[in-house]
């Protein structure tokens, strides 16, 4: 894949994932265990949607690619989003896992553009990461709160983190798939290094790394059950077929309110 094609597909993957992450934060404006958590979720939704808008502006200006999320009619199986975001998040544990793992993964990818030569994104990344810092603090605070509590929520969180870690590890892709972007100067760190950084961060956060599917490997961490890359889709950056739930996409696009769009 050319540098331009790799850049484009990376930006689409970031935009699609942030759109769905924003949806899930919005979904958890209602029903969280504390009203402050609902306010935080609502605020994080606003920031993720803002980042999607910014990324889509870059895609339009630099690559002549228009994916306005409200007008976009791509089918679910063409989204390049992290699989963990495919369905409504059924519990607060899943929301915290998305916050701790998926949001962090997207921020790590963004950080790899800081100092790179793709200026449209490199210039925006410091502001994006400034906003994302609070997402990480929120996630890590909730992981600690849940881990210091009862066994059932703790187990639910461990299960959700384990699933999120596998889907995010798949998002980072097999070793070396993105080395051209690093070699050409667009990014300063490759996805393999980012994945190792993320696994180490989560292993250091949780009390029992094995419970979330992580094991020591040399001076780092890896998944206890390795991924099989045979089915990896380079454009969609995922192993599993399918895509976001159609009902979620309908809500995001305002399908039921299409008559008001021209009002």
């Amino acid at each position: 894949m050319s540098r331009e094609a790799q850049l484009r597909s990376t930006l689409v993957a970031l935009s699609d994932s942030k759109l769905l992450l924003g949806y899930h934060y919005g979904e958890w404006t209602f029903g969280p265990p504390a009203i402050e958590a609902g306010i935080a979720a609502c605020s994080m939704a606003q920031e993720e949607f803002g980042h999607t808008r910014l990324l889509n502006g870059i895609l339009k200006r630099e690559f002549d690619l228009e994916i306005d999320p409200l007008a976009d009619e791509r089918p679910p199986d063409s989204f390049a989003s992290i699989a963990f975001l495919d369905h409504p998040l059924a519990s607060w544990a899943e929301l915290v896992a998305a916050n701790a793992v998926v949001d962090l993964a997207l921020s790590l990818v963004l950080s790899s553009f800081e100092g790179g030569d793709f200026q449209p994104l490199a210039r925006a990344v410091p502001k994006m990461l400034l906003e994302e810092r609070f997402h990480t603090e929120h996630a890590e605070g909730w992981v600690r709160v849940i881990e210091s509590g009862e066994a059932a929520p703790r187990d639910a969180l461990a299960g959700a983190l384990a699933r999120a870690l596998r889907d995010v590890a798949a998002f980072f892709g097999p070793d070396g798939h993105d080395e051209d972007l690093v070699r050409s100067g667009a990014r300063t760190t490759d996805d393999d290094a980012l994945r190792r950084r993320l696994l180490a961060r989560i292993a250091g956060l949780v009390a029992d790394p094995a419970a979330v599917g992580l094991r020591r490997e040399g001076d780092g961490w890896s998944l206890i059950e390795p991924l099989d890359w045979a089915a990896w889709d380079v454009e969609r950056r995922r192993l599993s077929a399918g895509g976001p739930d159609q009902g979620m996409l309908d809500e995001l696009r305002g399908t039921k309110n299409v008559a008001f769009k021209s009002a």
Binding site: Q46, E47, E48, F49, G50, H51, R53, L54, A124, K127, M128, E131
Partner: peptide
């Protein structure tokens, strides 16, 4: 010009 938040409504 800039904005205080990227998601400024």
């Amino acid at each position: 010009l800039t904005f205080t938040s990227i998601g400024c409504p």
